[in-house]
């Protein structure tokens, strides 16, 4: 319907964005009727989303004309932004930004480097930045899930952890079951994506490749490659994140510093 009204691509895009926004606001209205107040979060997220993606789109137009090495800086900036976003989900965890940055940089960075070296990711900016950003975004989500789950687990088991410490256990050992639980939980989305590939969803990249004239079988296989890379990047990110966070949860004297709040004195 919109295509019949708007012949100009920019106007069509704005109209489509408007329709999508109205739908999101309708969902917000439904949530509000059920006393779930997400207005502020949803409106800010919608505004941020459109401003950020349009800004990035504009920058990409400039970058695509630049030399290939500029993609390294773009990906590094994306990692820093991803770490900042992820760290906000980890309130109360000391050094959350550092943990997030090192984990995402290691997880996504290593996979990008290895797969570019192997030839699975093209070094052209038009390929490296979109694929790299997918890996970084998924690593960010995994890192957020890891930190969030770890904090919840530790807060729910403070008594057991401190009892183990009080009996002479090492700090790493006391949180080891919660590290495992956080790692497993954080990888559920990546595993489910791989598991349901082609059955539940056909990802955007494959659709794009098909639209741009790639052979369907190659587009399908490459989508599998992308999701496998996402799984590897997510796994590495969560691994580093859990390794780092368990040291950040304790003081040098093996005291649990990640606690719900300082308990009232009794």
């Amino acid at each position: 319907m919109l295509k019949q009204i708007f012949s100009n691509q920019l106007s069509l895009g704005l109209a489509q964005a408007l329709v999508a926004t109205v739908l999101a606001l309708a969902v917000m209205g439904l949530a509000r009727k059920r006393q779930i107040h997400l207005e502020r979060d949803i409106i800010i997220a919608l505004i941020r989303g459109i401003v950020q993606i349009v800004a990035v789109g504009s920058i990409l137009v400039l970058l695509l004309r630049g030399p290939r090495w500029t993609s390294v800086f773009v990906l590094a900036a994306m990692m820093a932004a991803a770490a900042a976003t992820s760290a906000r989900r980890a309130k109360g965890i000391p050094g959350a930004f550092g943990v997030s940055f090192y984990s995402i940089a290691f997880g996504a960075g290593l996979v990008i480097v290895l797969m570019t070296w192997a030839g699975a990711i093209d070094t052209a900016i038009t390929s490296l930045i979109p694929v790299g950003s997918m890996l970084i975004a998924n690593s960010m989500n995994t890192n957020s899930l890891t930190l969030n789950r770890f904090r919840s687990e530790v807060e729910a088991h403070t008594g057991l952890i401190e009892t183990a410490l009080a009996l002479g256990a090492g700090s790493k050992q006391t949180v080891s079951p919660y590290v495992q639980a956080s790692f497993q939980a954080s990888l559920i989305p990546a595993i489910d994506s791989l598991r349901s590939l082609g059955i539940v969803w056909i990802p955007g990249l494959m659709t794009g490749m098909l639209l741009s004239g790639s052979k369907p079988i190659y587009a399908a296989i490459y989508q599998f490659v992308i999701l496998s890379m996402i799984f590897s990047a997510s796994g590495l990110t969560s691994l580093v994140s859990t390794l780092l966070i368990r040291t950040h949860a304790f003081s040098p004297a093996e005291q649990l510093t990640l606690r719900p709040s300082v308990k009232a004195t009794r």
Binding site: G159, T163, L165, A166, L167, G168, A253, Q255
Partner: peptide, 23 residues
């Protein structure tokens, strides 16, 4: 006690809490 490794200190000064917190 800052000169005693924390794990060794906690072995020597054992604690029983209000709630048992059994493993």
């Amino acid at each position: 006690y800052r000169d005693i490794p924390p794990r060794e200190l906690r072995r020597q000064v054992s604690m029983m809490t209000q709630t048992a917190f059994l493993f």
